[in-house]
Every structure is written in C-alpha cells, then in structure tokens.
Design a protein around this nucleic acid. Structure first.
Lengths: 259, 259
DNA sequence: CATAAAATTGAGCGAGCGCTCGATTTTTTT
DNA sequence: AAAAAAATCGAGCGCTCGCTCAATTTTATG
C-alpha cells in the first residue's frame, strides 16, 4: 500500500511535491475501504441488521443511502433536532412508515451515523503502513495527512458528528468521547515514541496529542473559512504538520517540505 | 492595571510562579468588568431595554439572572432546542407569561446570550495593558492567559455559545462568525507584529492565528477531560503558551517559565 | 400467472411545543 | 387607605412533532 510515491512526504531536498502529495492522500485511503455513500451505508447495514427490517441488501443499501444523504444535508444546514422526519421523508422520497423500516427511533438514526464515523476513523488511523509506522516523525506526519484526507472524504459525516454528538442521548455522548480518546491515543503513541527516540523534544506528549485533535477538527468544522482563504486539504495538512513539528521540536533533518 | 505583579509571566530565572500567575489571571479580568451573573445580566438589560418589558432595573436584573442561570444549566446538559420554556419556567420559578416579559421569542433569548458572550470577549481582549501590548511576545502570552481566564469566569456562557451558535437563526450564525473573526484578528495582530519585529519566525502568521482559537476553545469545550487529567486553568494557559511560542519560533530569551 | 412474501404507504394518534392574554397580585403614588 | 401602575400568573390555542399500523403495491417463487 502507498506504493509508488514512496517515502510519505519525506524527501531530502525536495520542493513543491503538491501533485504527489495529493495522489498520496487519496492513496492513503484507497486501500482502507470504500468511503462512498453506498459503501458507508453497506457498513451501517451490517452493524444494524437486527434493527433494519428490509431483508434484501441491495434494496436496503440503496434506500439507506438516500435517507442518510438527505439527513446529512438537512441536519448540517439546520441541525438534527430541528429536522423533522416529515422533512426527511419529503426530501428523500421515502414515506414516513418507510423510514421506520430502517430505524426504530430518531435517536437510533443518530447513533447509526455517529457509529459509522467513529468506526471509519479508528479503522483507518490504526492501520498505518509498516514502513511509515517505524519512524515516529513520518508516522505523525502520516496521521495528520490521513486524518485530513479522511475528513475530506467523509466531510458531511464528520460535520454532522461534530455538530450533533454533544446534545444527544447518553449512549451517543459516551461513544463520541471514547472515539475521540481512541484517536488521541494513536497520536499520543506516535509522539511518545518520538520523544523516547529523541526525534521530538517535548515536555508533555500527552498534552500535545490532546491539542492535535482540535487542530485537525478545525479543517472540517470551519470549512467555509478555509475555502474563503484558498487553503486546500493538502495545504492545510502541510501547514499543520509544519506547525506541530516545530512545536514538538522535531529534528531539522526531518522537517517537511516548505509550502 | 495589572500593577503589582509586574511583567506578565516573564521573569528571567523564575521558577514556580503559580501563585502569582493565578492572582494575575484574576487581576487581568478585574478591571475589565463584572463577570458575575448579575453583572452580565445588567449588561444584557442595557442592550435589550426595548424588548424587556419590566421597567425597574433591580427587579429585571435579578429575574433575568435567575432565568439565564436556569437556561445555561439546562441547555448545557440537554441542548437549547431540547429545553422547553415550560421546563425553564418550572426550574426558575418564573411563570410562562413572566418569561415573555423578558424576551419576545425563544430565538431572541438565544441571541441575548450569544450577544453577551461576544461583547465580553472583544471588550476584554481588545484592551491589553499598554506595557504588555508593546512587546508582541508578552502580548500574545497575555492574550492566551486572558482568554483562558475569561472563559473560566464565564464558563457556562462559552459552553452554551459553542454548543448552540451553529444550529440556529441566521442572525446568530453571522454574529458568531464575526465574533470569532474579531478574536482571530486580535491574535493575528500580535503575531504579525512579532514576525515583523523578529520576535517570531513564522511563515504564515494568519494561519497560526487561526489555529490558536481552536486550541483555546478546547479548554472550555472539553472541560471534563482536562479536569480528569488534573490540569488547571493556569496549567492549561502555560502549556498553550509554551506550545504556541515554540511553534512560532519565539526567541529563547522570552520563553515562559517551565511548568 | 397465481400466490406468498416483502416492501411501502400516509392518515391519524397522543403528546408536547412556543406563545398569548385576561385575570390577579404586588408595588408605588397620592 | 384608596387608586393607579407595574409585575406576575397559568390555562388554553393552534400547531407540529415522533411514531404506528391497516391497507396497498411491488417483487419473488413454484
């Protein structure tokens, strides 16, 4: 995996590797799964076979896709709570009763989406290519660009999770906190290993790891702002890498290529 | 203002200035206004004299305080949208009709709170003491610790604003974005000046300023996490100062005292 | 092509919502 | 202490919400 582009953002005297990086970003996700609406809904169907009453998978997946597409669109505009099932029904073309073949309550629907987001996040970030995971600096760099690429590929899902996770049922709240801590633990792992090996000089690796999450969240939460400023996903990832590596006191020979 | 403690976190060979810093944190806010529930509600009353139908200020302020206290508590637990006026009435001891002497719609109530948060934020952060504002490094350090102190003093207000600003009426959305950009502009001012004067070596001051906001937000948004880890407001401010100054390549002679 | 199974429909239910307004109590003025 | 003004009250209005289920249409089977 990751093959031809080689060394993951590290290239001794390199300049302007934008094209390569963009390819790599997509490549970093390519093997990890299918992030299309259909693929994600297939995964939801698997995790909720007991609740979903429609038996035929191809029918269920297609309709789930229409339903969830609609919910993400409406909720990200006006909030999940403010989006009624009647609206969802009208916009998706699925009747009121039809919706209830796919979930038993509005809360379940919320949990389906939150669950898919956290499942995708951990399954992607926990599986860095071996050659990257060896070097803490490269590993952290990979985590940052992969996180940005993932949130890019599942943008409306992450926006939804961010907006709605807080104001909802205990189960959802707990799941969200756990998911976030899992992500943070992955960051912390790389930073602590780097500190032990002398790649980073940082007093408090746990704190640095905790700060990284909000930095990465800003990319999808304030998307409009970054677009207005003409910053691309690659540009954002590169800048965060630079910023964080400097804050961690990364050894100079590893410093990423300037934007 | 800020008087006796002197130089704002900078002290050549200093160690363990915790006590001083804590005093300074409160002092930094002391002259800027009254951040008690009463004081904040007095400010709201001033800005909404036309909507609020109760004429006597002392009565209006006292009751507003009870109402808003209740709303902040309930909303931060279960969301503003999910909190009904009947609940607010029961919990605050003000009748349904009574509530409507203080606002003409639930949306107005939301805007009152959001407005107070952004008013307080800009009025505080825009008024750094002159001796601090002179030096960009000290200025940035002051902005960080004052922001943390302010969000500490108005914790439920900031949590509310963070949770509810997104999913509501256009007016509130716009106000929130503007308020955030104002804060960011203040950060950017200090960082750009520092870069020009050579105190910082940073490629993209605007980007660094934009990243600072989410770092400071994490303090009040994930409050439970930080408390669980035993990190105080002072500790958080100090760590963010260290982290950010390192990322900005601040000159060593200005580096803050180690925790 | 008949029949069983699966999928889909939407009017209707009870509940709770934001909000109003005439009646009532409290406070101030004379 | 009476009258005027200010503040407070809460039952009730119209409406929309999440959700259900008997009836219907669509699809698969022998």
């Amino acid at each position: 995996m990751d093959g031809i582009e080689g060394r993951h953002g590290y290239r001794p005297g390199g300049r302007s590797r934008y094209g390569e990086r963009r390819v790599k970003m997509k490549a970093a996700l390519a093997d990890k799964g299918d992030f299309s609406m259909e693929g994600l809904c297939r995964s939801i169907l698997e995790r909720h076979r007991d609740t979903i009453r429609v038996r035929k998978p191809h029918i269920a997946v297609a309709k789930l896709a229409r339903i969830i597409e609609t919910i993400l669109t409406l909720s990200n505009r006006q909030g999940f709570h403010a989006t009624s099932l009647r609206e969802i029904s009208a916009a998706s073309g699925v009747s009121m009763g039809g919706l209830y073949s796919y979930f038993d309550s509005k809360d379940t629907l919320l949990l389906m989406i939150l669950g898919q987001v956290s499942a995708a996040t951990t399954s992607v970030l926990e599986n860095a290519p071996e050659d990257v995971a060896i070097d803490p600096v490269l590993h952290l760099r990979w985590l940052i660009e992969t996180h940005v690429a993932l949130t890019e590929a599942m943008l409306p899902w992450f926006v939804f999770a961010f907006l709605e996770a807080k104001s909802f049922p205990p189960a959802g709240r707990r799941a969200a906190v756990e998911s976030e801590e899992a992500t943070e633990a992955i960051f912390r792992g790389a930073i602590e290993r780097g500190a032990r090996q002398g790649c980073f000089s940082v007093e408090d690796p746990a704190f640095a790891a905790a700060l990284l999450k909000p930095l990465l969240q800003d990319w999808y939460v304030k998307r409009a702002k970054w677009r207005r400023r003409g910053i691309t996903a690659d540009g954002y990832a590169t800048r965060v890498q630079t910023f964080v590596e400097k804050a961690l006191g990364a050894r100079a020979d590893h410093s990423p290529v300037a934007i």
